[in-house]
Design a protein around this nucleic acid. Structure first.
Length: 871
DNA sequence: AGCCACACGC
DNA sequence: GACGTACGTGTGGCTG
């Protein structure tokens, strides 16, 4: 690769700066330097430059600016660019600083009296194409479409679309696809249609549409006028003839001068080293703390990062207090190979790719994502001992507002802006393992951040009284979850395939029937096409519209299903095709070679402290409708084992009873009442439980659910199909009869507004930055989250405690039984038949005594050969 | 590749 | 008076 091409980036600075100004225009008041100067355009321009340079990796950069009011174009056409609004002052004042920034970054800028930036760019572009220039790839960046005429085989023109990072990339091929034009024809297009912003008219009454049509037919302005007599008589023909001169003049005005008398050459556009100290001073002057911090740490990082590559096990030295980190390229640690690992502390860091080293490794006690490490090492036959500290989990406990990546931890707790994984490894199809030096440096940076943030994160945990939440809940749980993920659950392909074959037949029949009833074939899976059939062709009454068209969601279709067989069939089709695509075709490829599915539990994601499950999600396997529930027949126990499922009964309402201390709710649970019937009696004033109708109970159940979600009367009314007033009465009656709950809701909202967060029984926090938002909808959303988070979160915490205790009891009791799955209020175990009686008792006892509430905790158990039976 | 609508669970 | 139940993941259509 020694004949590497030069990469030249030519930027229309005037145009791009204007775009930058408007990219952050809505925040113009937030971007003000200490001196009072507006900085939104400077800031956005800097971001744009960073994005461009990072993406295009140029070695030459020239940023051209317009100079002065008059150019050779005004000489030709005196009103050129007349009538253009004067630049806003807030923008004009920023231009000199943008030029200063360009210089300090080591890039080049240039302007030439009487010429526009376009012409400077055009001239340099042509210079770069001369054979004696050597090979150049040119990228032109601007906000103005005129420059598209310069696109050719080695020049790409990028037009700024939106924000600071979105550009539309014009090559001759793309221009042909999009507009049917060559770059040369683009000039003729402007000649015919004119340009209102540059204030030259082209031909009267000819706009983009007409001009495109004319060029499709005649190819060029010259050819058009050569054949003007053969055009049919029309107003347009008259206009073309009358405005012939203006068409040619407009074309000339639109033509970029590629022979401007510039005094610079290509060598002058080469990037120079940045002026670091000058930049730091500039950032201070502008008030750009983030840019400054990023530059400082980049500088410091280069100096402080002291790391050594280890290739041989004999070279290894580990301190107990070190951090340990393992890298994989993608997320699924059940399949990914280790691409490198690192350990060490702030002073001394070691990196390696040789996993042999790990065979007899004294794993240090501090780590990041213990669960991932445990699974990865298990695959190498290594059992990872428990850790004392996990930065990922610590960060998650401190704040769930951001993600918990090492980069984020660095930024938040050390003001250290290391490059992101996406920057180093790429994303999508381009993601790949970089060269050793890049990889090792990246890993060393991670260790450096982990080691430099532990202390301040521990302080945060201490202040929040969350240290035990980390060491006694999340860390032990990580160990339990790792074992569950490694165990996996056996899934029979044959069962899934049988269901799949059955579904295929049903889908074929339903599809035929739907086409017949609709009177045409269409894609039933497309809500858009379905909306057209139902609500336009067949004129069915439509409910709410979504942003993109008619809603075809189930609740809308259900109302229509009584009157229209077609809609009933579509609902059936949806049900079956969901089962087929997500649960049959989706699950089969997830079955590993051992015949089991190994999900991953994400332990650092949800806003409430619940787990989530991915690849595949085993927390949403169908259960409600029988057709879907059959999927559970494929989830089976090993030979001589059974599956044991144990779920908490009404855990969220019990938690609500406990934390609200509502005497009536507590009393109902203490008396072992059917909680929904009991609510029906209190809320509807029914004296005997035998007088509670199933409808009363259904309504009460809905209220009970709604309360813990902070539901409004409108929502309740809609869900129960009752009037707003009836729903409001119901909610009011509920609060009157359960004053403790009403008080809990009041107090929790109050607490959230005062502190900005709410907590679970175990001090897990959810921040609620929107709780005092001026927007009613946003604020009310935060209030619902405030009410729900302690309830859902405490319930989640309780199941976590139960899992930890159960795993440890099973180990102590030398049982072979093991935990396999967790579904929010339920756990599923695989139990050897001979252990069943003992384990059933142990599970029930452990779950019910996980915590002491002022109401009983109840766990219901079911067993069977498959998950279908064990429920 | 990223967004939307939809559907599954608790 | 706004707007209208919490927390999640996966699939297919559509668009850039």
């Amino acid at each position: 690769m020694e004949n590497k091409k030069n990469k030249l980036l030519l930027i229309d600075g005037s145009s791009l700066a204007f775009r930058a100004f408007f990219a952050l225009y809505n925040q113009v008041d937030r971007f003000v330097a200490p001196s009072g100067l507006h900085t939104n355009a400077i800031y956005a321009f800097h971001l744009m430059l960073n994005n461009l340079v990072e993406r295009l990796e140029p070695d030459h950069v020239l940023i051209a600016f317009d100079a002065g009011k008059t150019t050779f174009r005004t000489e030709m056409f005196s009103t050129y660019k007349d009538g253009r609004a004067r630049m806003p002052d807030e923008f004009r004042e920023q231009l000199p600083f943008i030029k200063e920034l360009i210089e300090k970054l080591g890039y080049n800028h240039y302007e030439l009296k009487n010429y526009e930036a376009d012409d400077i760019i055009g001239t340099l572009d042509k210079m770069a194409e001369l054979p004696e220039a050597g090979a150049y790839d040119v990228t032109i960046v601007t906000g103005d479409k005129d420059l598209i005429q310069l696109a050719d085989s080695n020049t790409t023109v990028e037009i700024s679309k939106k924000g600071v990072a979105e550009f539309e990339s014009f090559t001759p091929t793309y221009l042909m696809e999009k507009m049917g034009l060559t770059p040369e024809q683009f000039i003729d297009l402007k000649g015919l249609m004119g340009d209102s912003s540059d204030n030259y008219p082209g031909v009267t009454k000819v706009g983009e549409k007409t001009a495109l049509k004319l060029l499709q037919e005649w190819g060029s302005i010259d050819n058009l006028y050569a054949n003007i007599d053969s055009l049919k008589q029309s107003k347009m023909k008259d206009n073309l003839i009358a405005d012939r001169e203006m068409a040619y003049l407009s074309r000339t005005l639109a033509t970029i001068d590629t022979k401007a008398p510039i005094e610079i050459n290509l060598a002058d556009t080469r990037i120079k080293p940045a002026d670091t100290s000058g930049l730091l001073a500039f950032y201070d002057e502008m008030g750009f703390a983030q840019f400054k911090a990023k530059l400082e740490t980049a500088e410091a990082g280069e100096l402080a990062l002291n790391f050594e590559v280890i290739e041989d096990p004999s070279e290894v030295s580990v301190e107990k207090e070190d951090f340990f980190y393992i890298e994989i390229l993608n997320e699924n640690y059940h399949k990914e190979d280790i691409i490198g690992f690192a350990w060490g502390n702030k002073e001394k860091i070691f990196v390696s790719k040789n996993t042999e080293i790990l065979k007899n490794f004294a794993f240090p006690e501090n780590t990041y994502d213990f669960k991932k490490n445990k699974v990865l090492l298990h695959r190498l036959g290594i059992e990872l001992p428990p850790a004392k500290y996990d930065s990922m989990l610590a960060k998650y406990l401190i704040s769930t507002t951001e993600d918990n990546k090492v980069e984020t931890i660095g930024r938040l707790f050390a003001n250290d802006f290391m490059p992101t994984d996406e920057e180093v490894y790429g994303k999508g199809a381009k993601r790949s393992v970089p060269k050793d030096d890049v990889l090792f440096k990246h890993l060393a940076r991670k260790i450096h951040i982990l080691a430099s943030t532990k202390e301040v994160m521990l302080q945060n945990l201490e202040e929040n009284e969350q240290y035990r939440l980390l060491t006694e809940m999340e860390l032990p749980l990580a160990n339990v979850l790792a074992k569950m993920e490694i165990a996996g659950i056996a899934v029979e392909v044959s069962t899934l395939e049988e269901i799949g074959a059955e579904n295929e037949k049903l889908i074929a029949d339903l599809t035929a029937k739907i086409y017949e009833l609709a009177g045409e074939e269409f894609n039933i899976n497309s809500p858009k096409q379905l909306g057209v059939i139902l609500f336009e062709k067949l004129q069915m009454p439509h409910g709410k519209k979504t942003k993109t068209g008619y809603s075809t969601a189930a609740d809308i279709l259900e109302n229509l299903a009584q009157d229209y067989e077609l809609v009933a069939k579509i609902l059936e089709y949806r049900q079956i095709s969901k089962i087929q695509s997500t649960y049959v075709q989706g699950l089969i490829p997830q079955i590993a070679e051992d015949g089991r599915i190994h999900t991953r539990y994400v332990q650092d994601l949800t806003q409430t402290g619940r787990l989530s499950s991915v690849e595949p999600n085993l927390q949403n396997i169908p259960v409600r409708l029988e057709a879907g529930r059959l999927i559970r027949k494929a989830f089976v126990a090993d030979e001589n084992n059974v599956l044991l499922s144990s779920d908490y009964s009404q855990i969220e309402l019990r938690v609500l009873a406990h934390i609200s201390k509502d005497e009536h709710l507590i009393s109902a649970f203490n008396h072992g009442a059917d909680i929904h019937s009991s609510t029906a009696m209190r809320v509807f004033g029914i004296d005997k439980s035998e007088n509670v109708t199933s409808n009363d109970r259904r309504n009460a159940k809905a209220v009970n659910f709604g309360i813990s979600y902070g539901e409004t009367e409108y929502g309740l009314a809609k869900r129960l199909s009752i009037s707003n007033k009836e729903a409001a009465d119901m909610i009011r009656a509920y609060f009157e009869r359960y004053p403790g709950v009403a008080n809990y809701i009041r107090e929790t909202k109050r607490e959230a507004k005062d502190k900005g967060y709410v907590s679970t029984m175990f001090n897990r926090r959810r921040k609620l930055p929107e709780i005092n938002n001026r927007n009613f909808m946003v604020r009310q959303g935060a209030e619902r989250q405030a009410i729900n988070a302690p309830i859902q979160g405490s319930a989640g915490d309780i199941l976590k405690i139960a899992m930890i205790n159960l795993d440890s009891a099973l180990t102590k009791g030398n049982f072979k039984a093991r935990l396999l799955l967790q579904v929010h209020d339920e756990i599923i175990l695989e139990v050897p038949k001979e252990e069943l009686a003992d384990v059933q008792a142990l599970v029930k006892q452990t779950m019910e005594s996980a915590v002491e509430l002022n109401v009983p905790l109840l766990a219901d158990e079911n067993t069977g050969d498959s998950w279908y039976e064990a429920k």
